[in-house]
Design a protein around this nucleic acid. Sequence first.
DNA 1: CAGTATCCTCTGAGATACTG
DNA 2: CAGTATCTCAGAGGATACTG
Lengths: 116, 116
Amino acid sequence: MKSELCLTHILPIRDALDIISGKWKIPILTALCIHKRRFKELHRDVPGITAKMLSKELKDLEINGLVKRTVYETMPVSVEYAVTEYGHTLNPIIFALRDWGLKHRVKILSEDKVEV
Amino acid sequence: MKSELCLTHILPIRDALDIISGKWKIPILTALCIHKRRFKELHRDVPGITAKMLSKELKDLEINGLVKRTVYETMPVSVEYAVTEYGHTLNPIIFALRDWGLKHRVKILSEDKVEV
DNA sequence: CAGTATCCTCTGAGATACTG
DNA sequence: CAGTATCTCAGAGGATACTG
């Protein structure tokens, strides 16, 4: 129970957070996990994101091998984003976050009733 | 598979991220999950954090009911931080992040060998 | 010991307009 | 359609010094 054990827990968590932290990466991956999408569809389905942030975050995700970008030479071009096999290894994190968020919302709502 | 379904996935995730996002909250909770700690012990065991950030993040975590602060009127005072019962509901997220971080590190290291 | 107080930097993120 | 280019700013985060 000393610092070394603590580090073996915290350091991998920091590795993970370095890659997926921020306001948008997990929401984007969540949308893409449901099914692959084109840029504009993502822009529409991830509420509140700007084109600039979406573009930047998709690049980060692609660099880290979590998302694959495919360009179709239609006219005009269409671009499709999909979660890679490696990206799907994040599913347990995504599900855990979603489960907790759902329960948390229920908790907050019930507390509001009591407080007010 | 339309936007509504997407929202039911993304909105709870944003609720969760609003509370635990940032560089320090999950590492702090991880340290406290192993066992409760005093301020200075946390400062030592969460690598790289400053006293200011630790203080701020602990306040946020306390406000959200994830951490409990207990003051002992020793001389000088000692303060103990512990994860609340509600805070422990985050364990699945913490474990998922840690598992993924560990596997990711293995992947990165093996890729480095191939590349170099 | 358990924090505050200052000061500072940097970047995550938004708004708006524009392009191949 | 799928992005870029600017501009802007709040606040996350860090360094250092100080206090009850």
